[in-house]
Write a protein that binds this DNA or RNA. Structure first.
Length: 509
RNA sequence: CGGGGCGUAGCUCAGCCUGGUAGAGCACUAGCUUUGGGAGCUAGGGGUCGAGAGUUCGAAUCCCUCCGCCCCGACCA
């Protein structure tokens, strides 16, 4: 059978790269590990950005922008933070180039007195500002967000999932009490959960990361974890309660109403362009990408079936009027995003390009549709009937008044439902000993493996280290401890001690 | 940084073992035909064979060094 991609999901890693390429999302660049995000991929990011920005502002935060260069001494202030990021930082050491022996190179006379680190995250430089901005309890809470690029010198980059430079949003807040900061941490975790599920149609499990997976310098780290179609987990967003660690390191203090000087409790939280990788691996199929209408840069693409004949003009005119009419319809709270694709390439080629890119509805208009006032279209969420592409026909009026809006909403829902079934069906419970874990994850790496939900005694320190090592041997990690916990627990799977918490175990990106 | 694979046309790759001076399919350009749906025929454009040095009368092919990419580890949003 002919598919729009030449690789299917049985070779998942290759398939992923094929989708990124063939759906025109991104490509590698001359800079190792850094990607070029192409218009269609960036369009998805813009949709994500727009809606998430709205939600971040709706919860009381304001946007700022801080420098991308951070003095080395700032990073050095928080010990765990240094340790966590030291191995992956890009550093600026010079401010001028010079031709020496015919070679353009950093001018030895232009060495910076204090090297600048290209931000891997901005806790330290924003904390420095906070230490000046906060004086009184009246200045709190301080609720700041920034949209930025960050750089982490990763060993093995993968487009969207782990690139040297990536785009993200990082929220940073300061509060008078730990309770307030914890509440903020949880609130933003919930913003991420609902955004991911409602908007990206990507079901996730929100929960707390174990101690060994915490953000360097955090008191507690929470994440949303999504299950990809190969069963692996993708950490799709994080929210950290930082306690007073950064406040103490950077002097973020305030005077309370009794006149006492106290350190603030701070939080930070972020999601990145990795979300796009998550969308691809959640919704993609063997014909390419399938985009949830909420984030599709174009929700309805009209492909005129032109044949270099006189009636082409009628077809085009009909398409133009259809596009105009569609633009005035609202779906999912915004006007429908329509594209009339007039690029001068073969119509059939166009159709398949849009299939690969994952446009939710692809409309094909030929002379007969134009003459009869009809619309023929395909739904990207259910493209095929068996092996054959499924074409749906209706009248123009029907499409405009009913079908277009209704089907876009349906696609948004059906993509979520499909992914939700997969997530729920592949979290195995009832495993109570290590042999059961080994049994569940045995076999080749290519085989689909979901997650296990097991009970444990939440060991820490050296005990936790042992658990971690044991899991690592099977390439497993603890993803998180879901927020929803049962009333009673089986004994700890690792130690046999009384269980206190349920955790998710799986392979991860 | 360790282990494996690989760099030849825009893409996917053949040729390399056994050295003789560049190929296929798709894509691209033009013409003709065809067309309710991923068309056919004909003609054409495009490559310092990843880079550098070496062996040789002659190197995509053999040797050396370097660079880059992919997969598997360690690291990670």
């Amino acid at each position: 059978m002919q598919r729009a991609l030449d690789i299917n999901r049985t070779r998942f890693a290759d398939w992923y790269q094929a989708v990124v390429r063939d759906a025109d999302m991104a490509e590698t660049s001359p800079v190792r590990g850094a990607m070029v995000i192409k218009p269609w991929g960036y369009g998805v990011w813009e949709q994500i950005q727009q809606e998430l920005d709205r939600r971040i502002k709706a919860t009381g935060h304001e946007n700022c922008y801080f420098p991308m260069f951070i003095p080395l001494s700032f990073i050095a202030k928080e010990a765990q933070h240094v340790e966590g990021f030291a191995k992956e930082m890009a550093i600026v050491t010079h401010h001028r180039l010079k031709t020496i022996d015919g070679k353009l190179q950093p001018d030895p006379d232009a060495r910076l007195e204090e090297p600048l680190v290209v931000r891997p995250t901005s806790e330290t430089i924003i904390g420095d500002a906070f230490s000046r901005w906060v004086r009184s309890y009246r200045d709190l809470p301080l609720l700041i967000n920034q949209w930025a690029n960050v750089v982490r010198w990763e060993m093995r980059p993968r487009l969207f999932l782990r690139t040297t430079e990536f785009l993200w949003q990082e929220g940073h807040t300061a509060h008078a009490t730990a309770e307030e900061a914890v509440a903020e941490t949880m609130k933003m975790l919930e913003v991420y959960r609902s955004f991911s599920e409602d908007y990206l149609a990507m079901p996730v499990i929100a929960g707390e990361k174990p101690e060994n997976e915490r953000f360097p310098g955090a008191e507690a780290t929470y994440s949303i974890e999504a299950m990809m179609q190969d069963g692996k987990a993708l950490q799709a967003g994080t929210s950290h309660f930082l306690g007073t660690h950064f406040a103490e390191a950077q002097g973020i203090k305030f005077q309370d109403d009794a006149g006492t000087i106290t350190f603030c409790n701070t939080t930070s939280w972020g999601v990145s362009t990795r979300l796009i990788g998550g969308v691809i691996m959640t919704h993609g199929d063997d014909d390419g990408l399938r985009l949830p209408p909420a984030i599709a840069p174009k929700q309805i693409v009209i492909v005129p079936m032109l044949r270099d004949k006189p009636e082409d003009a009628d077809v085009l005119a009909y398409c133009e009027s259809l596009a105009a009419a569609l633009s005035s319809i609202h779906v999912l709270g915004a006007p429908v995003r329509v594209l009339l694709d007039t690029k001068k390439i073969k119509s059939a080629e166009k159709r398949w390009n849009w299939v690969r890119r994952g446009a939710p509805i692809i409309v094909e208009i030929g002379p007969r549709d134009a003459a009869g006032g009809n619309v023929t279209f395909m739904r990207r969420d259910s493209l095929r009937d068996g092996d054959k592409v499924k074409s749906i026909a209706c009248t123009r009026a029907e499409f405009l008044e009913e079908k277009a809006a209704q089907i876009l909403a349906e696609i948004q829902h059906s993509l979520y439902a499909e992914a939700k079934v997969r997530l729920d069906a592949n979290i195995k419970t009832g495993v109570t000993d290590w042999a059961g874990v080994e049994d569940y994850f045995k076999g080749s790496d290519d085989e689909f493996k979901g997650w296990l939900k097991v009970s444990w005694s939440k060991p820490s320190g050296a005990e936790l280290e042992k658990v971690d090592t044991k899991l690592k041997a099977l390439k497993l990690t603890i993803r998180n401890a879901p927020l929803q916990q049962p009333d009673s627990f089986a004994p700890c799977l690792f130690t046999g001690a009384p269980g206190v918490q349920e955790i998710l175990i799986g392979r991860a990106y």
